[in-house]
Design a protein around this nucleic acid. Structure first.
Length: 263
DNA sequence: ATGGTCGGTAGCCGA
């Protein structure tokens, strides 16, 4: 079973690319971020025609996440628990039956947090705190759990093209990296780093200043696995070629292959 | 030193 995450930066602008990618990459489950669409405007029919069930948690103009899956989820939960006043659509969880049990796939779009020193950075850290609390509860189930998405976190210095450029950014500040490390210390495993020691590896290249052409990228899209999910991990791939397509997203898909079989 | 590019929306904001 192949599970992928991709920040598509607007589903309306990317629907042709999304269809081309689904056909070529053929993920069993796809986690999409920044759909920038309300649920009613998501191009559901075109995706369903490819054989996917579509679950969205949309929002007008900004944010918004979606879960596409070849099998119907047994359960879907929208919104990250822990703050009933949070109106931003950044989290959706699906439960899927597999041979021998079930897996939980969470699609998350973690706040960017810039500029530092504003309520935006405080919101990012609060959101990461809520995510860690959620992750800890899911870990206690001792089931395969996959937390996939745009974390807006550069985990290590070698995950960015120039530390000097990023050292004061919300994506790389020590407090941000410590909050991400908390997930690892709970027992979650970075799927890409569990299968590759290649450096650097990037999943995002800014549209500005020719970053793609100069390979000035950062690795901020991650699949974090509970131990039970990591047990079934076979390989990962960063689908870098997608960044060279016409009208690309600034992120590329990151995928992990598992030995789970749909039930 | 500055601004550079997108998407979505509305006459700028978020990234």
């Amino acid at each position: 079973m192949k599970i992928a995450t991709w920040n598509i930066n607007g589903v309306k602008a990317r629907v042709d690319s999304l269809i081309a990618w689904l056909k070529a990459s053929n993920p069993d489950i796809a986690c999409l971020q920044e759909i920038k669409s309300v649920d009613e405007a998501f191009p559901r029919g075109e995706i369903e025609a490819l054989g996917y069930h579509v679950e969205t948690h949309g929002q007008k103009g900004f944010n918004g996440v979606a879960l596409l899956a070849k099998q119907r989820p047994d359960e879907v939960n929208r919104g990250l628990p822990g703050d009933d006043t949070d109106e931003q659509s950044r989290f959706i969880e699906g439960v899927f039956s597999v041979k021998g049990g079930a897996i939980r796939v969470c699609c998350l779009y973690l706040p960017n947090g810039n500029p530092v020193g504003t309520e935006k950075y405080a919101y990012k850290l609060q959101w990461m705190q809520r995510l860690a609390a959620f992750a800890e509860r899911r870990l206690a189930l001792e089931e395969p759990v996959i937390l996939a998405g745009d974390y807006n976190v550069i985990p290590e210095p070698h995950d960015c093209w120039d530390v000097k450029v990023w050292q004061n950014d919300a994506l790389f500040l020590p407090e941000t990296r410590a909050a991400f490390r908390r997930l690892r210390n709970l027992g979650f495993i970075d799927a890409v780093r569990a299968t590759s020691d290649e450096v650097p590896l990037y999943s995002f290249w800014d549209y500005q200043a020719g970053c793609w052409q100069k390979n000035f990228g950062i690795r901020i899209d991650h699949l974090m696995l509970s131990p039970e999910a990591a047990d079934k991990l076979v390989s990962t791939s960063i689908e870098k070629h997608v960044r060279a397509w016409e009208k690309p997203s600034d992120h590329v898909p990151v995928a992990a292959e598992f030995t789970f079989e749909a039930a």
